[in-house]
């Protein structure tokens, strides 16, 4: 099993883990968005609450959810290891002048963007996920079944201007993170071929714009309309 250690302690192996976990998180974002879009339904939050109940009780989803947490932690852990190693690789004397003309901003600042996303994630988990799992939630009854009224929790937060602003700002960070991260993960996996690069780049950039924009639209919509 030496080869596994060799693989995952090599720069290439670490990058592989970054790419794979990143791609999983991209998938997770898409699924999460589909759920959140229920918030836009004009039904007093019923669809959203039903969906949330399903997501937090279905055993299969629970397993995936644990995996998701693990992958987020792994993604963060490896990024920290790589960042430290990469900084060491530059050496003690650093450049006095750097021009930044040869690469795009987001590609050079994935660490900063990732940190913003992480801070958001902590706040977000505390306000919603922890509240939902451990907090004292109000209940609603649809067709005789009792549900936790997460919708009202969301609506309560999204009524606060600073919270909406923070949410939108963080979604912008997610967008920039994805702008580079989506196609980058394919490159790391070795999937670079002139026949498919166009499609990958198009999908990546579309995803990076559309998904965070929709996420951000929900609080804006709920705040203003």
């Amino acid at each position: 099993m030496n080869w596994l250690i060799t693989l995952f302690t090599s720069t290439l192996g670490r990058k592989l883990l970054m790419a794979l976990t990143g791609l999983f998180l991209i998938l997770f974002l898409a699924v999460h968005l589909i759920g959140n879009l229920q918030l836009l339904k004009d039904d007093g939050g019923r669809a959203f609450n039903v969906y949330a109940e399903f997501m937090s009780t279905n055993p299969l989803i629970q397993i995936v959810s644990k995996g998701n947490f693990f992958f987020i932690l792994l993604h963060i852990f490896i990024s920290i290891v790589l960042t430290i190693k990469n900084r060491q690789a530059r050496g003690t004397d650093r450049y006095a002048v750097t021009s930044g003309k040869s690469s795009i901003w987001s590609s050079r600042n994935m660490g900063i963007l990732g940190t913003i996303v992480l801070v958001f994630l902590v706040v977000h988990l505390k306000h919603f996920w922890a509240e939902m799992h451990f907090g004292d939630m109000p209940k609603v009854i649809y067709d005789g079944t009792e549900y936790r009224d997460i919708y009202s929790l969301v609506a309560q937060w999204f009524a606060l201007p600073w919270y909406v602003a923070l949410y939108v700002f963080c979604m912008a960070a997610v967008a920039f993170h994805l702008w580079h991260g989506f196609a980058s993960s394919f490159q790391t996996l070795g999937l670079n071929h002139p026949k498919y690069n166009g499609i990958i780049n198009f999908l990546g950039k579309t995803f990076a714009v559309v998904v965070p924009a929709l996420f951000a639209w929900i609080p804006i919509n709920m705040f203003f309309f």
């Binding site: 090599s10 720069t11 990469n86 530059r90 040869s102 690469s103």
Partner: peptide, 20 residues
């Protein structure tokens, strides 16, 4: 790759500055 890592070069973050 093993030698590259041994020498202490960093990891690629696909900024593509090298290509440029």
């Amino acid at each position: 790759v093993a030698q590259m890592d041994e020498e202490g070069f960093g990891a690629c973050t696909n900024t593509k500055a090298c290509e440029a």
